[in-house]
């Protein structure tokens, strides 16, 4: 994973509430076998409108998305995070996110920033004409107009994002503890340690 310290650039003033994962990436995109190229399916239905924000000259490739309440609700498909990533989005700002989506986003190096609706409203205004700046270290969102909003983030997630650390790599470093568990459980619950090797 690439380290993520700051995100700076245009922010798509999307603003919709209850955006479910079917809206972010329709089900027929689940038939792919790679994570790449999913931007084609991102917001597919909305983007059938030629005047959509995502393909506009101003916001195409923008690294920040501003949305309404409960962003990413619905199915657990990680394709939603992959689709945003492939669109070039590195951070989503919203008043709330579905748990599964924010977990999937984090695991793919996308920052989810939770801010109150009033801050979202202000950023939606600014985003029409100017860039937005997110600094993960100081946990702030700022604008060229002296706006400054601070946000909370799980310390573990922050640490992983700043260092570009992948969770699999971190857990692999705990190999000794995992092996110790396997040895112990293998003695007390040997039947669980066998799996497809017929007992």
């Amino acid at each position: 994973m690439e380290p993520l310290k700051q995100v700076e650039g245009r922010a798509i003033p999307f603003g919709a509430k209850n955006v479910d994962t079917d809206v972010i990436i329709p089900a027929h995109w689940l038939k792919t076998i790679t994570r790449e190229g999913m931007s084609k399916g991102a917001f597919e239905t909305l983007r059938q409108d030629p005047a959509n924000l995502f393909d506009s000259e101003t916001f195409k490739g923008a690294p920040i998305l501003i949305a309404g309440d409960n962003f990413g609700c619905g199915s657990s498909r990680e394709h939603a995070a992959w689709a945003l990533m492939d669109l070039g989005i590195k951070a989503v700002i919203a008043p709330s996110f579905s748990d599964i989506f924010s977990g999937n986003a984090f695991k793919n190096g996308i920052l989810t920033v939770v801010l109150p609706q009033a801050a979202i409203d202000r950023l939606m205004d600014v985003a029409q004409t100017d860039p937005v700046h997110i600094d993960l270290e100081s946990q702030t969102v700022t604008t060229p107009f002296q706006d400054r909003f601070t946000f909370e983030i799980d310390p573990f997630r922050k640490h992983c994002l700043l260092g570009g650390l992948d969770e699999v790599g971190l857990t692999l470093a705990r190999d000794e503890a995992i092996s110790a568990y396997e040895n112990e459980a293998g003695a007390t619950m040997p039947w669980l340690n066998k799996g497809v090797v017929a007992a």
Binding site: S76, E78, I100, G103, N104, K107, N108, T171, L172
Partner: peptide, 16 residues
């Protein structure tokens, strides 16, 4: 679980 977790379990046989 999601696909990143599938990867995590394949690689480590654990989940956080």
């Amino acid at each position: 679980i999601g696909t990143s977790e599938v990867e995590h379990v394949l690689a480590t046989q654990t989940l956080l």
